[in-house]
Simulated scan of single mutants.
Amino acid sequence: MRKQGFLLLMLVLAASFKLLANEPTAVWQGKASAVSLTYDDALGSHLDTVAPQLQHYGFLATFYVVINSAHFYQRLEDWRKLAVAGHELGNHTLFHPCNGKLPGREWVRAEHDLSTWSVARYQQELQVANTTLAALDGRTQRTFAFPCGDLKAGETSFLPLLPQYFIGARGVESGVNLPKQTDPYMLKLFDATNLQIAQIGPLLDSAKGSYAIFMFHGVGGDHPLNTELEVHQALLAELARRQDSIWVAPVVEVLASMAKAH
């Protein structure tokens, strides 16, 4: 009798562990983890270098677009093609406003200095950027990325505005996002600036059972925050090698899947 009780306990524990191990697969399209590749500021390298590499591997990504970027408004048809292919055009505002009073922010133009803005003005920034993107891609759902990681206009948080316009937002805090513990409006990330090839495997290993977001700016040297071209290529190749266990998708798709599962 005691032996039967022990066996029953082992069966219950095994079933429990199996359920725990399988829980993320219901969230991430049958995979153990999810990864989103995100690219900020609407740069030329995103269209000319990143997009062809993504297409080669069949990956879809999120491009956080600054509407006032010359590489955006001068190449609208190229961005439209990205959206048609299934990539997300995320909102990164009209003018990339940041708090110019913080150290190292001497580059912030006076008219784009968040420390002087009201929340109402920031709301207009979000609205017009969303309207512009919707005119380009026809979509009603998208996500947001905080320029410079700033969360206030003047002295007031604009975070309460976000659910009106987005299903989630990528922050700047480092880390992974766990099922049922993730704030969709403050998603954590891995900053890929100066990423090294030797770091790729360990980073992906550390993200098992979670949702990881990689943040890129320049790829190949067209931005001070840069990821070397061969490193970007190596990351995509490693993600392709792990496709049986990692779902690679735009942020908007992963958040929609997580919301549906819960």
Rank of each mutant, 00 (worst) to 15 (best):
M1E: 11
M1T: 12
Q4W: 14
F6H: 12
L7H: 14
L7D: 13
L7G: 10
L9H: 10
L9M: 10
M10A: 15
V12N: 08
V12M: 12
V12E: 03
L13D: 01
A14T: 15
S16K: 10
F17K: 12
F17I: 13
F17G: 14
L20T: 09
L20S: 10
A21Q: 09
E23A: 12
P24W: 01
V27N: 07
S33A: 00
A34V: 07
T38L: 02
T38A: 03
T38D: 04
D40N: 10
A42N: 08
G44S: 15
H46P: 00
L47S: 01
D48S: 11
V50H: 03
L54H: 08
H56I: 00
F59W: 04
T62D: 04
T62Q: 08
I67C: 02
N68W: 09
S69A: 06
H71T: 11
D78T: 12
W79A: 09
W79R: 06
A83K: 04
A85E: 11
G86F: 03
N91D: 13
T93Q: 02
F95K: 13
P97M: 09
C98I: 04
P103E: 02
R105S: 11
W107I: 13
V108Y: 07
V108Q: 05
A110W: 11
E111R: 08
D113R: 02
S115A: 15
V119D: 14
V119T: 13
A120N: 14
Q123T: 07
Q124F: 10
V128D: 14
A134E: 12
A134V: 07
L136A: 06
D137G: 01
G138S: 09
Q141G: 00
Q141H: 11
P147C: 01
C148Y: 03
L151T: 05
L151I: 03
L151H: 06
K152R: 15
T156I: 11
F158I: 01
L161R: 08
P163M: 05
P163H: 07
F166S: 05
G168P: 05
G168F: 02
G171D: 08
V172R: 09
P179K: 00
K180C: 09
D183W: 06
K188H: 15
L189Y: 07
N194I: 10
Q196P: 04
Q196C: 05
A198L: 09
Q199A: 13
I200S: 08
P202L: 05
L204S: 04
A207E: 00
K208P: 11
Y211T: 06
Y211H: 11
I213P: 03
I213N: 03
F214R: 10
F216M: 00
H217I: 02
G221P: 08
D222K: 00
H223A: 13
P224I: 01
N226P: 11
L229N: 09
Q233H: 08
L235M: 07
E238A: 11
A240L: 03
R242K: 02
Q243K: 14
S245T: 15
I246P: 00
I246M: 06
W247N: 01
W247E: 05
A249K: 06
L255I: 05
A256Q: 14
K260C: 04
H262A: 15
